[in-house]
Simulated scan of single mutants.
Amino acid sequence: MMPLLSVIVPARDEALALPQLLADLAPLRTAGAELILVDGGSQDATCDLARERVDRLLRSAPGRALQMNAGAAVARGDYLWFVHADTRIDTAAIRDLLDVLSQRPLWGRFDVRLSGDGLALRLIGTMISLRSRLTGVASGDQGIFVAREAFERLGGYADIPLMEDLDLSRRLKRLARPRCLHTALLTSSRRWERHGIWRTVLLMWRLRLAYYCGVSPHQLARAYHRGSRP
């Protein structure tokens, strides 16, 4: 019997991107998956656009970790799939997810591809996927899916403003290596394009290194939002 799946989408001011994701997920919802959107205080039409297209519409304080934990707390699924609002999901990704869930893995993630044109962005997506495959650590853009029992046993996402995906991955990896799906989710390249591709890459590497060296995620979040050194 196929395990019940709950898809949890944290969003804030995503009225432009969200309708495309909800359209991608509509067949999965029709097939019986539960779709939960957790809004973190949108000032645009995010909630209005989602209201009739999700099973649960929640509101919480802003912050992806808080929002995703809020969604997980009400989810009914045996598996939780965390998907960012600016992600696009094709039928191959859904097919591969359902196939792997039938094998009852502890957790897993997808490869990732950035939405923009150009060799540099394609290379970045490839390197993110390869790094994740080698390290067993996933970013939130990779659509982490996890058995509900394991997520609850670990206490869910840590209440931190940044690196919550890496923190959860590292804790899950102590239980089992992830199932790494080669199918790629398409994620928005807007931050790379807005702030400069290589400038953003260098910033993210500095933040990761600082995180692994023990710098507070709160300090890292301030550096992330101002685009400077932690």
Rank of each mutant, 00 (worst) to 15 (best):
A93F: 01
V74I: 07
F82N: 15
A150K: 13
A72G: 10
D141Q: 14
L121K: 05
Q43Y: 00
W192G: 08
A147R: 15
G108Y: 06
S169F: 06
H195T: 04
A33P: 05
A70I: 00
L16E: 15
S115C: 08
L154R: 11
R199M: 03
I124K: 07
T183R: 11
G40C: 00
G71M: 05
D141I: 05
T126I: 02
R104F: 03
I144K: 05
P178T: 03
E164C: 09
D55E: 10
G41F: 00
H218R: 10
F151A: 14
R113P: 09
V137C: 15
E193D: 10
L114C: 13
L5F: 10
R64S: 09
G32N: 04
T91L: 00
L186K: 11
R179Q: 11
V9D: 05
L4P: 12
Y211H: 10
L18I: 02
W107D: 15
W192E: 14
D96L: 02
M68W: 04
A176W: 11
Q142I: 03
E34Y: 11
L58Y: 05
D141L: 09
R113T: 10
M204I: 01
L209N: 15
P230V: 03
C213R: 15
S139W: 04
Q103V: 01
P10E: 05
A26I: 01
I36Y: 07
V137F: 11
W192V: 00
T135M: 07
L175C: 07
L123M: 02
R190N: 11
L97H: 04
V7P: 02
F145M: 12
P27H: 02
A93G: 03
A147L: 10
G108E: 12
L123S: 06
C180S: 08
A184V: 03
H195Q: 12
D39N: 07
S189L: 02
L162V: 05
S228R: 14
V215W: 14
A176S: 15
D96C: 06
D48M: 02
D86K: 03
R12M: 02
F110C: 13
T135K: 06
R29K: 12
V74E: 14
H182S: 09
I128E: 14
D111G: 15
A50Q: 14
L220A: 13
L209R: 15
R104H: 10
R29A: 10
W81M: 09
R12F: 00
V137W: 12
L4R: 11
